[in-house]
Design a binder for these strands. Structure first.
Lengths: 236, 236
DNA sequence: GTTTTTGTTAATGTAAGGTTAAAAGCAAGG
DNA sequence: CCTTGCTTTTAACCTTACATTAACAAAAAC
């Protein structure tokens, strides 16, 4: 029953309105990333892992619709809500064509926005059956219990894992014997893909290798420039 | 999957507003009982079986908070929504302490109220599944009688538990060997999740650990950032 | 051979949890 | 009322757990 904080990407060029809206959403338990224009919005979108996008339609350089189209190319499922000052029919239509999940005219009641967000999230949550819910893994002689965050070797003592250790090992296990792309772990676990998070991840790979040393048939291999591979030798 | 008509108790002294609201809710498929003051509200509450209470805060004789407290004594789970003209901070706090599920400032958008009601009902519906009626537990060498609030070790002396000690231990026992999320205990037992209630809970965890020290096979483990785990080693 | 990427260890800063004691609430009973 | 005893909260201080960053070594790519 773990409640995951929902992440929202807010792209709004009006600094006043943007900040107020961000604060309001933050107060209501959403993790908000605020981008000040379309370019920035797309960059942040690519690097983070969001649950919902709120896009202002009227922005310099890159308008909300164009941005939405780009976002849709990367992710066909993510809910998008448009903010617009104009209640023009064509605009609304254009928005829905790009795949808007909802539409709000400025100025709007912030409570209404909140309700709509909640409704959209819920709707999506029901769809998301594909979201892997596996929390127990056998890795060679190890058992990983990813819900309670511990690892045992041959039924021995339980070693506690930190949240990051746990998620990373789980992600590797989900791709056992296969490539687990760096980018995937970084966007999903660290929720940001940059130099520092990347180094942080390497630190965690080292930690995991230390735990896994107990079983000579289990190892984490690096695929240079690509990611890592959790391999289990099943001979013996 | 039979749909049961939800029953709402509406306590509102303003006859105009009360009637309008009642009609509005009725139109939206709720069965509404309208009480015109606190006394009447409590009488009707005792006699009826409601799914939700909507209480006006400002009422003659008996205000909404007092009424809420009385209702809470009879039923610790029923959702309560307060209506108030004042957006005063103290009022809000007082309300949540009594166990408010939501708060609405008059005048408000009736659509918003409707959505909130829906959301609350849904939330409660999910909780109720896990809400067990078990009141006796075996925890290693201990027996917990949660109705009479005492704990015995190997049939020895009965140690009395305070209400909070009791509820917390029961909540842990309901999740034996599994994660009992911090948030769950805080929202269910303390009815509020903030820094202080959280520290309060830690104090109670310490108390329970002291009681449970008698049996070396029983312990309460912490899962950092998640919650606690009551583990029982069943080897001997 | 130089640059980029990865491996590893240690240092730092922050957040969460543990512990104890004092203060505040609260419900009898005098 | 005021006290008394019990429960709960608040506060202070301490310890542990985590994640990030830095620094340097090793490996791979170019």
């Amino acid at each position: 029953m773990e409640e995951q904080l929902k992440r929202i990407l807010l792209v709004e060029d009006d600094p006043n309105f943007g900040t107020v809206l961000k604060d309001y959403l933050s107060m209501n338990d959403y993790e908000v990333t605020h981008a000040k224009n379309g370019m920035e919005g797309f960059e942040k979108f690519k690097r983070g892992d969001f649950d919902l996008c709120i896009l202002d339609v009227m922005m310099p350089y890159k308008d909300g619709f164009t941005l939405a189209k780009e976002i849709r190319e990367k992710n066909a499922d993510i809910p998008i809500v448009f903010l617009t000052a104009k209640a023009m029919k064509e605009d609304v239509l254009k928005g829905y064509k790009v795949g808007a999940d909802d539409y709000l005219n400025k100025p709007f009641d912030s409570e209404v926005l909140l309700m709509k967000i909640k409704a959209i999230m819920q709707r999506k949550a029901n769809d998301t059956v594909a979201d892997s819910k596996q929390f127990e893994f056998k890795i060679g002689g190890f058992d990983l219990n990813s819900k309670l965050r511990f690892l045992t070797y041959n039924g021995g003592e339980q070693v506690k894992l930190s949240p990051k250790e746990n998620e990373l090992l789980r992600m590797l296990a989900l791709h056992e014997n296969d490539l687990m792309p760096r980018e995937l772990a970084l966007t999903k676990i660290w929720r940001d893909d940059n130099y520092f998070t990347s180094r942080s991840m390497d630190v965690y790979i080292a930690k995991l290798r230390k735990y896994l040393k107990l079983d000579p048939n289990v190892e984490i291999l690096n695929i240079h420039g690509e990611g890592f591979r959790l391999v289990v030798n099943q001979d013996a």
